[in-house]
């Protein structure tokens, strides 16, 4: 409960900052295509596991190209994983891996009108993600309670290259000169399903659970130059 309260407090503070800034309109008459690059770090990712919104930990950042305040080609890089996760059936899962995403956001705010929210962004976008992960599933028990026989199998150093899609929406606001803050919410899904009998990864850094709800919430702090 305390963790959720912390999350709600952070949400209120950051959203207030963003929304207050949305009312502070600025005018930008720059007609060039390239308007800068924004580097972002996700402030919320270290908290997602702590508040129970993610099974694993992850840290991530992004490089965003600003094209006419309208299109934002984006590259995201992160590192995440899960350590010694124990299932109800006693299996132990471990993985730690880098992940990458590439995609684009589109600013739905009209940036051509004077007095519009030129330095604020309300975007929708898509990502294509991938991770080449190494994972271990250990203590896999084959039990035969009636005949009193048991065996334990370990699947170590399993490798899988996973790709997935993401659809997201979010806002960014320039709180002070060239410093942006904002949030994204995204849903995502893998392009493939586990094959029958495959010893597939339980958790995939960057994607989440292979079988289960996949979503992500980000609070980003960015610097545009």
């Amino acid at each position: 409960m305390r963790k959720i309260s912390v999350f709600i407090t952070i949400t209120i503070i950051v959203s207030s900052l963003i929304l207050n800034n949305l009312t502070a309109q600025t005018v930008n008459k720059d007609s060039s295509l390239f308007r800068g690059i924004r580097l972002e770090v996700d402030l919320l990712s270290p908290l997602m596991k702590a508040i129970g919104a993610s099974k694993g930990y992850y840290y991530q950042g992004a490089a965003v190209v600003n094209l006419k305040e309208k299109f934002f080609p984006t590259i995201e890089i992160g590192y995440g994983g899960i350590n010694n996760k124990v299932s109800v059936s006693g299996l132990i899962y471990n993985t730690n891996a880098l992940y990458y995403r590439i995609g684009m956001d589109y600013n739905v705010l009209n940036s051509t009108k004077p007095l519009s929210a030129m330095n604020n962004i309300f975007s929708i976008g898509a990502r294509f993600g991938g991770s080449n992960l190494l994972y271990n599933i250990e203590n896999v028990q084959i039990t035969d309670n009636y005949w009193n026989r048991n065996n334990i199998i370990n699947f170590s150093n399993q490798r899988k290259f996973m790709i997935w899609w993401e659809v997201l929406a979010g806002i960014r606001a320039e709180i002070i000169n060239n410093i942006f803050i904002g949030w994204n919410v995204r849903i995502k899904g893998a392009f493939t399903s586990p094959k029958q009998g495959e010893v597939y990864p339980y958790y995939i850094p960057g994607l989440g659970l292979y079988n289960g709800g996949k979503w992500e919430f980000n609070y980003s702090l960015g610097w545009q130059f």
């Binding site: 059936s89 599933i137 896999v140 495959e198």
Partner: peptide, 11 residues
């Protein structure tokens, strides 16, 4: 034939 089911269910 042994088949892996899932992390939750095991083998």
């Amino acid at each position: 034939k042994d088949e892996y089911l899932s992390f939750e269910c095991g083998y």
